[in-house]
Design a protein around this nucleic acid. Structure first.
Lengths: 149, 149
DNA sequence: TTGTATTAAATGTATATACATACAAATGTA
DNA sequence: TACATTTGTATGTATATACATTTAATACAA
């Protein structure tokens, strides 16, 4: 559906201005659906993202600042998100022996099981969320990667 | 720059999963720049968006719920954003005579002047933010509009 | 080695999102 | 008309973002 109709705006100054708003609006569309999906599991989209980063470590610990670097939102707050996940028993946090300023974070077995439980449904949902064919979605990824310079 | 490099992820399950993350990451990229731009003017991106909606009314009042409908984030809170803008003298809020539950919102002269002051720079920034040529940005808008179904 | 600078993480505060609830005004129906 | 329902807005609470500050540990230079 045309963005102009969805937000009841007659027209944009130019395609660049429309693209800005289009990306923000589409992000909200996606996060809303993700949020609805994850809520029954007690996870926010951001917490889910941190869990995926930890799973990607394949059992190796990772520091809080490395998590921060890999997060989708660079201005987020990995320290507090990790604390939330720890309270749910999904991650472990322990002082790094080599550098006592750092804190090693690892996903727990419970965290891994939760991700595995979600995995199949998430893949399906991702496909349903994006009403594009394979060639179009590949083109979209190309354009977004290029957009950021 | 490739998303995989920016968030240090080896690969995605498929292009659909990458597209989800790509949109979220690109939104954060844009909002961060918008935020940096708007901060000197004391506006958040969301407050700026509400002001633009009000300007689009060409002097006609609009209710809080109509603002909500047109906002980029449907789950936002127009009532509180309007209150912030009112405190800054950028909008007026008055009871709607036809229906006393409703509240008519209008942009003030000060609000209009602020938007005009920003306009030129915003257009330039939008172009710089998106490192795509005219044909590519048009294609991006087409894909995002289609994506949401 | 001592003092300074840097780094990692945590914490404090303001704003915004997500959602539930409250309350008053309007609407619809018996 | 009386009463239940719906609607528009405001408000309360939890989570997250944006950013400044704090604290402890480490690195480095005089």
């Amino acid at each position: 559906m045309r963005l102009e109709d969805e937000i009841q705006q007659k027209e944009f100054k130019d395609d660049y201005s429309k693209a800005i708003v289009n990306i923000l609006f589409t992000q909200s569309y996606i996060v809303t659906k993700q949020n609805n999906f994850l809520k029954p599991y007690g996870l926010s989209p951001e917490q889910y993202n941190v869990l995926r980063i930890l799973r990607g470590q394949n059992g190796n610990p990772i520091t809080v600042s490395s998590i921060q670097d890999r997060m989708l939102n660079k201005m987020s707050n990995a320290s507090r998100l990790v604390e939330k996940l720890k309270q749910k028993g999904l991650v472990l946090r322990e002082e790094c022996p080599a550098d006592r300023r750092q804190v090693d974070i690892m996903i727990t077995e419970k965290g891994l099981q939760l991700l595995n439980q979600l995995q199949e449904e998430i893949l399906n949902q991702n496909n349903n969320l994006i009403q594009l064919n394979q060639q179009e979605v590949s083109q979209l990824n190309f354009l977004l990667d290029k957009l950021r310079g």
